[in-house]
């Protein structure tokens, strides 16, 4: 249920592209993500996730198109920088500084930096302020980076692979802290991740990138209700695949599993076939394995008629 008014966009990209030398890292990217979501950005290595995030925070400039954040502010503009916080992949902190000095530095580099809040969080996390950042555990470092970003009191938080180097417990604690910030401040969050399995509990909006293009974009609830797994006799699979947009087609001698995008249309299930709901992980993996299929909002219907590997 998403009945809230969603006039303002957290991220808006049109015709967005970025070329490094002769290689397009991102190409013709169109997105309009409403405010108030927790967005997961998923895709294989080299699919353009980091490029997209860097464009969104102004660390890179587009080769084509444009990207705006937080209700139409140009990415990288002063207004945008004030209300968007970014946590980079390597949690760019100075390892030789103490935690307290890191806070001091961040206070001087940002307008409207809430030191009291940052210090309270560090205390809550039991991180000694005198400890050098380089001596912290990966989980603590990530928490410090998150603390600095939240102390800016941003409207939007963008994180590049925040979970990648964390153990399961640190990952859980980090996500708990992030979700608490969402609950308390109502911020929008966009984060990229490799950890597909844990997305379902956290994100309510999904963007899948493949080879520099947006493959899937939409609210998780909508995506899940518009996909079904059809299981039935392999002999009839061709006939079924001809009538429905198939994301992924797995067949053995006797049995076939077709992951179908039903788009909420009324679909007759042929006799001998049964349908199953799919989970987010299963759906994401299917798309990652079938780069030709796509699920995008709006009039663009890029799905092949029964795209088969």
């Amino acid at each position: 249920m998403t009945g809230m008014p969603e006039q303002s966009l957290a991220l808006e990209a049109s015709g967005l592209g970025k070329r490094y030398g002769s290689t397009w890292a991102l190409r013709d990217c169109g997105l309009s993500i409403p405010e108030g979501h927790v967005v997961a950005l998923v895709g294989p290595n080299g699919s353009g996730k980091t490029t997209l995030l860097h464009l969104a925070v102004g660390l890179a400039t587009p080769t084509t198109g444009r990207v705006r954040v937080q209700g139409g502010l140009d990415a990288g503009s002063l207004e945008a920088l004030e209300c968007v916080a970014f946590v980079a992949q390597d949690t760019a902190l100075y390892p030789s500084l103490s935690v307290a000095d890191m806070l001091h530095l961040a206070r001087n580099l940002n307008t409207g930096f809430d030191s009291a809040r940052a210090e309270a969080r560090i205390a809550e996390l039991d991180i000694p302020p005198t400890r050098k950042v380089g001596k912290l555990s990966g989980g603590q470092r990530a928490q410090v980076a998150l603390t600095l970003a939240l102390a800016k009191r941003p409207r939007q938080l963008i994180l590049d692979e925040p979970l990648s180097s964390l153990d399961p417990l640190a990952r859980h604690d980090f996500m708990a802290a992030l979700m608490t910030a969402v609950a308390e401040d109502g911020i929008s969050v966009i984060f990229s991740s490799h950890v597909v399995a844990e997305l379902e509990r956290v994100c309510d909006y999904l963007v899948v990138l493949a080879s520099g293009q947006v493959q899937v974009a939409g609210e998780v609830d909508d995506l899940l209700t518009s996909h079904q797994l059809y299981t039935g006799p392999a002999a009839q699979a061709d006939r079924l695949a001809a009538t429905l947009p198939v994301v992924r087609d797995r067949r053995a001698e006797a049995q076939a599993h077709l992951l179908v995008r039903t788009s909420g249309r009324r679909t007759e299930v042929p006799t001998g076939w049964e349908t199953h709901q799919v989970g987010l992980e299963e759906m994401v993996l299917a798309y990652l394995r079938a780069p030709a299929a796509s699920a995008l909002p709006g009039p663009r219907e890029l799905i092949g008629k029964g795209a088969r590997p």
Binding site: V38, H172, D173, M175, A176, A177, M179, T180, V182, A183, E184, R201, V202, C203, D204
Partner: peptide
């Protein structure tokens, strides 16, 4: 409270 659940389970508050 929503905040307690979110902090304990690391899930989206909207959930």
């Amino acid at each position: 409270k929503v905040k307690e659940v979110v902090a304990g389970l690391a899930i989206n508050p909207n959930t």
